[in-house]
Amino acid sequence: MFVRIVKLSFAEENITSFLANFETVKEKIRSFEGCQLLELYRDKHNTNIFFTYSYWNTEDDLNNYRHSELFKGIWAETKPMFNAKPEAWSVDKLESLK
């Protein structure tokens, strides 16, 4: 399984807009071909910092999403809200204990 972790930091005044936009697009992202899971986390202490975790069948599936019109629209809406450069990691899931 291929996992994408993205750290997003927003200006305080943009958090409500970000969350509202995420609410409208989350099902579209999750239903994109190859996406198996989408999660949104908020830092406990720095509440302007969020993380998305998405699980993909393959790296190609993620790349197809990243080059899609859906992603381009989401990114155009989200990018002006940042107060720091986003960071992203692509990792292979090795183990998961439940």
Rank of each mutant, 00 (worst) to 15 (best):
T78I: 09
S17N: 13
F50T: 02
F32C: 02
R66D: 13
R30C: 07
T78D: 04
D43I: 08
S90E: 14
L19N: 05
E13F: 10
V25H: 00
G73P: 07
T47Q: 15
I5G: 01
M81P: 00
V6H: 00
F22T: 02
F2T: 05
T52K: 05
W56A: 00
N64H: 12
K28E: 11
A76D: 14
K44L: 12
E33C: 02
M1Q: 11
S68M: 09
N63C: 10
D60M: 14
P86M: 03
F18R: 02
N57F: 06
S17T: 11
Y53C: 04
F18W: 06
F2H: 08
P86D: 03
L97S: 07
D43S: 15
E77Q: 12
I74Q: 03
Y41A: 05
K85C: 06
R30M: 12
A11L: 03
T47S: 14
K72Q: 15
R30L: 14
I74A: 05
Y55C: 06
L37Y: 09
K72A: 15
A76I: 07
T16N: 11
I15A: 01
E69N: 13
Y65S: 08
A20Q: 13
L97T: 11
M81Y: 03
A84W: 01
H67M: 13
N46D: 14
H45S: 10
K72N: 15
T47N: 14
S17D: 10
E77P: 03
I49Q: 14
T24G: 05
F71C: 01
N14C: 05
D92V: 08
S54V: 01
A11H: 05
N21T: 07
Y55W: 05
K72D: 12
S68G: 09
F18P: 00
Y53Q: 07
A88E: 09
N63W: 11
E95Q: 10
D61E: 15
S68T: 09
K98C: 06
R42C: 13
C35H: 03
E69W: 07
K44R: 11
H67S: 15
L70F: 07
Y53E: 06
K79C: 07
F82Q: 02
R66F: 13
I5Q: 01
K93S: 13
E27Q: 10
M81K: 01
